[in-house]
Design a binder for these strands. Sequence first.
DNA 1: CGCCGTCGTGTGAACGTACACATGGACCCT
DNA 2: AGGGTCCATGTGTACGTTCACACGACGGCG
Lengths: 346, 346
Amino acid sequence: MPPEAGKGRAPNIRDVAALAGVSYQTVSRVLNGSEKIRPETKQRVLEAIEESGFRPNQAARALVTSRSRTIGVLSTHQHAHFGPQTMVHAMEVAAAESGYRLAVVTTGTTAASIVEALERLQSQAVEALVVVAPKVSVFEAIEDSSLDLPLVTLDSSIHNKRPGRTHSFAVDQYEGARMATRHLIELGHRSIIHVAGPQDWIEADERMQGFLYELSENDLPVRAPILGELSADFGYRAGLELVRRRDFSAVFAANDHMALGLLHAFRDEGLSVPGDVSVVGFDDIPDAAHYLPPLTTVRQDFAAVGRRSVEIVIGAIDTGSLGALELIRPTLMVRESTAPPPVAWR
Amino acid sequence: MPPEAGKGRAPNIRDVAALAGVSYQTVSRVLNGSEKIRPETKQRVLEAIEESGFRPNQAARALVTSRSRTIGVLSTHQHAHFGPQTMVHAMEVAAAESGYRLAVVTTGTTAASIVEALERLQSQAVEALVVVAPKVSVFEAIEDSSLDLPLVTLDSSIHNKRPGRTHSFAVDQYEGARMATRHLIELGHRSIIHVAGPQDWIEADERMQGFLYELSENDLPVRAPILGELSADFGYRAGLELVRRRDFSAVFAANDHMALGLLHAFRDEGLSVPGDVSVVGFDDIPDAAHYLPPLTTVRQDFAAVGRRSVEIVIGAIDTGSLGALELIRPTLMVRESTAPPPVAWR
DNA sequence: CGCCGTCGTGTGAACGTACACATGGACCCT
DNA sequence: AGGGTCCATGTGTACGTTCACACGACGGCG
């Protein structure tokens, strides 16, 4: 007979027990990998599970253990696309390996929508939280919301605000920005502009800080960064504005999409990259190697971040304590969008 | 006193009942929006809920109703990035509005990983399934897996295989491909090559069929499409190969990433776009408007697809029946990567 | 004036599992 | 031989909610 036959009800632990000729508790033990069980009995139970098509009821399990085995993921839609997508996928795989699942909630940027996202997460009884796209306002909302969970944030500056309960883990944005800037300086650029992301966005801010630090370290003039969204559209508009000023020989963009917009604007206005101006991006999305020209950028290992963040958070659930800040070094990918400045700028 | 104070246990329905001076069943009725309840009592219960910080236990609810209120989403990592990301976000919002949540599982392309993904979905007791990235092998695996759920697939050709239980809903890929091809033909191109996606990928296949149909409709010579991954890397390699052949004046790429790779290859080999060759993409990802040159492409309303698919699937859960195939028309975005063919090709 | 229907509310059971504890047998040590 | 220990397995109960049903009060109607 087919496994799913019989009455409409799904088989439960007692059906399996009856089939195997043991008590339901024995089945439960097999399910939970208890040691104290005779291999022969275990085998019989396993066969009964197979035969009946039994599948443990997560709801019942969650109810009695008061453990949801769910990790909440808070992501912002804003910064959609490659990075978060890759991280979340890696997180999902890592979570599944440890018997956890993910509750992914994407939120807008307004305070109200963040609160609402936290609400949804709480109603799913998540045991821990990973904040993928850390904005300052997200943390403010979390502080306010009196929810007390192990929290991993994918940035490198918040962790000291909630000692013991918060763990930061991330690619070192600050260092990445310094690498990008240093690369331009080593090529001979002395007038470098930064097109930055929104400043309430922690990563964007760190990239800017890294940029500014490296500039002052080398006694170079600091010009105010241009602030905007992390999109190609904004990069394009910023590029047009920059062309009018013409007071720079290199631009460091806060991400690759912005850099693409800059490339577009510069081409439209007759500026050659890297002949007239050099451009560096951040992220190394798969398309970046095919931009015209192929983009010099800072590569982040998104998958590693996703994987590790889940490991950390599961560790925190089990042990109750979180470690310190960890950082992954990014890599500079030098391609064709950077070159020494034109003679006029040396 | 703070809402979360007291013993370690979270407040339950009985605590609320005691606080409001009613029975637990009355609280349950308020929670479920029952009609038969005096407004005054309801008010009192609501206040007690507020005061105690009560939050209904989803696990208990799921256990007794045997309803998980979870919609499974099966996505493939392969085709990561913009489209799926946008759809899933829209789905999540739409689901939350109706009190559902999403269980997103991303799978690789091997049969084993698809089976494993379905397994994970089943263990989460999803009530319905939306297949975001439909591959032929996914449906084969679903057929084999004896799981019987309302199923919405985001493509337009599978739906008649499981009448009544499956609903297809999608942007009309076939029509989109015809629009793109027709655009090239109207510009005067007579030798058009298609760089196609993997053929076990239903959408990619439909795009190819649309392309082929439009060609034969216009009595144009059909050259074998180049098959490969939907990535810029592959587009680049295909582009290099195409340049060697030089037997075309236009290329229709199966997605924007591929088109970007083509642009890169053509530039590397000294071919001007659209001067020497025209290029059309598919998807209209946000970057496409900033490619060099800005890409003519077919826009899909991903958010609408995501939203509607959840509506359909929830309707199916409630009523038990699914409607017929629905299609959304895409839009052709004409930008600068297409122009009439050079004189030699007319 | 008694009956019935309706409204608002309460009581008992059930969902499927894991935990705490109980049981019975085999074995070892003294 | 007796007691203690460990092993393998079984029994009772609790988790928090909803469903089916029961119940009292009230009003309308014959």
